[in-house]
Design a protein around this nucleic acid. Structure first.
Lengths: 228, 228
DNA sequence: GCAATTTCTTGACCAAGATCAAATCGAACC
DNA sequence: GGTTCGATTTGATCTTGGTCAAGAAATTGC
């Protein structure tokens, strides 16, 4: 791999605290690969050969089964993904596809498992990362079960706003149909959900969303009481 | 804690491989408590003070927010629960309530975190447990997003059948309304879903379910291609 | 720049599931 | 055994969200 992105990857919570020599060993045993958009990186059911780290671009993780399909997560750089499958050496439960031209660091699964066994700090970071990911999914499942579609959209926007830098403004990544699938609705209903939110402080302009009345949106969407 | 259940807890994947002395330290720092049914063990939002191990009885984990409520998991003995909150010292995302008279081992969160740092085998077991729990939730979320209610019920039955000992027979634990909430539907609709499954090889007699035609049920429910 | 293609939006209609109400079933208690 | 209370089932109706179709807007390709 090129050295340019190494520091940024090394700064990830997953790799931050581990032994420098072992980290170097992980990196030198991995390779950075460039992928065009719409390329399938791996499919659900395959044996987990690599821990992936998205360095640049955009990746969708989805589940497809019985002719149906749903987006589980949109991965933005710089983030590792598919850690749970790698840790337990189990088949991927999701399919990964690039949405934009992307650069991905591929860490051989056997290598990362070996180094995890050797390095307590890496193991602890892995454990913490998995615990946080688990909690994200608890929230996502509760969201899907308890809220209706426009509320889910409202909460998604509030959450994105708090993560993105510019206050009050959100830039959607990917197409709207992708967001619809992530939120568990059809593109048609996402469109209608945006119209519903128009009377609750949200303005839409293509992929640029503005929250002009945060209180009204909170009132409507009833965000989680426990902050992330 | 009494010594009777110690071996069974020690045999759990979480505690199985750790150092014996440290395991003894964990157990002697914990206490086994008996709770009546319908008692709230902890509520969402509270600081995670204890790792819980259900030794006997039945516990519901639920999320309640904005006047709505949904069952996230039904915990059967012998199983630990709420590990993710404890590992990262974060507030519980779920509320726990006993459904039957229950005995629960309460392991102080600070103690288990300390021993995890000291014992690589325990840390590895924790990491694995979290990774498996994560994968369960990926399945649950995909299930909720992609399948309709009767299919979810069918898959639940197939899954329960494979876990319980008697082939073809399932004993529901807890009331049907609980199962309805776990599957993300109303009790009324659960009842209708059972009638739907009647024409797909399922017979119901109170809490005793019989799968008289496994193939027909699979055909209807389209279970996950990747086995758990 | 303009045609072609795709995405997004809107409207009409349909299906799944929720709600409300009432009837039935079953277990616990006298 | 009969009563009572809650759980479950059934039916009628309503709401939400999905489907289908068409038009508007945006993007791509030439």
């Amino acid at each position: 791999m090129r050295s340019g992105e190494k520091p940024e990857i090394a700064r990830l919570p997953l790799f931050r605290d581990m032994d420098d020599t072992l980290r170097e060993r992980v990196f030198s045993g991995s390779f950075l690969q460039v992928f065009p958009p719409q390329l399938v990186l791996f499919e659900l059911g395959q044996r987990a050969d690599f821990l992936h780290v998205l360095v640049d671009g955009l990746v969708e993780l989805s589940v497809n089964s019985g002719g149906r399909d749903t987006t589980m997560r949109i991965v933005e750089p710089v983030t590792s993904f598919i850690l749970a499958a790698v840790v337990n050496d189990l088949p991927y439960l999701m399919t990964a596809r690039t949405l934009e031209p992307s650069r991905v660091l591929l860490v051989p699964a056997a290598l990362i498992r070996e180094v995890i066994r050797q390095d307590a700090a890496l193991m602890q970071a892995t454990m913490r990362e998995l615990a946080l990911a688990y909690r994200d999914l608890v929230r996502a499942l509760a969201d899907m079960k308890m809220r209706q579609s426009a509320e889910r959209l409202g909460n998604y926007l509030l959450q994105q706003e708090s993560q993105q830098t510019a206050a009050g403004t959100i830039h959607l990544k990917g197409e709207k149909r992708l967001l619809a699938s992530l939120l568990g609705m059809t593109p048609e209903n996402l469109s209608r959900a945006f119209s519903t939110l128009a009377s609750h402080g949200v303005r839409v302009n293509g992929g640029k969303i503005t929250i002009i009345d945060r209180d009204a949106l909170c009132e409507f969407s009833r965000p989680d009481p426990i902050p992330v």
